[in-house]
Amino acid sequence: MWTRDRRTRGEWIFDNLNVIAMLILCFATLYPIWYVLVNSFNDGTDAMTGGLIYWVPRKFSLENYDTVFKNAGIMTAMGITVAKTVIGTVLHVFFTAMVAYALSRKELIFRNGYMIMGTITLFFSAPLIPNYLWLRDLGLLDTFWVYIFPFMFSFFDLIIFLAFFREIPDGLEEAAKIDGANDFLIFVRIVLPVSMPVVATIALFHGVWQWNDYFTGLLYTNKADLQPIQTFLYRVVAQSSSNQILGATGGAINRKVTSQSIKLATMVITTLPIVVAYPFLQRYFVKGLMIGSLKG
Rank of each mutant, 00 (worst) to 15 (best):
E11N: 08
P130V: 01
L233T: 06
K84F: 00
N71K: 10
T221K: 03
S259D: 14
P193F: 14
N254L: 14
S242H: 06
G88K: 10
Q244G: 10
I20W: 14
T81P: 11
V188Y: 13
F285I: 12
P150K: 08
S242F: 10
S241I: 01
S242G: 08
D213S: 04
I178V: 15
T216F: 10
N182W: 09
P127A: 04
K84L: 08
Y132S: 05
R136L: 06
Y220G: 05
Y147D: 00
S261Q: 13
F144C: 08
L246R: 15
I160L: 10
T89K: 06
A200D: 13
V208M: 10
T143Q: 04
I190D: 04
I160K: 01
F95H: 04
Y65H: 09
V237A: 00
D170Y: 12
A72S: 15
S195W: 07
L246A: 13
A224N: 14
S154E: 05
V68W: 06
G51I: 06
I178G: 09
F156M: 06
N131F: 12
A21Y: 11
R189S: 07
E174W: 11
Y54F: 14
T249H: 01
E173M: 15
F144V: 05
F232K: 02
Y31N: 07
A21R: 01
I291Q: 01
T121E: 05
L272I: 15
P197L: 03
V56C: 04
G207W: 02
L218F: 11
S259M: 12
V275C: 12
G139K: 01
K177E: 14
A97Y: 05
M1E: 05
L62W: 15
P127D: 10
L62K: 01
Q260N: 14
P279K: 13
D43P: 01
Q230W: 05
I116Y: 15
T119I: 07
I291Y: 08
Y54H: 07
S259I: 04
R189W: 03
I74N: 03
Q244S: 08
G250I: 03
G171I: 11
I24Y: 14
I168R: 06
A252L: 00
I87C: 06
V286M: 13
V276Q: 12
A102F: 08
T270K: 09
D15R: 12
C26K: 04
W34D: 00
A181V: 09
R136F: 00
T201W: 06
G251A: 03
I13H: 10
K263C: 05
L135R: 04
T266E: 02
P150S: 06
V19E: 05
G250A: 07
M1N: 12
S259C: 04
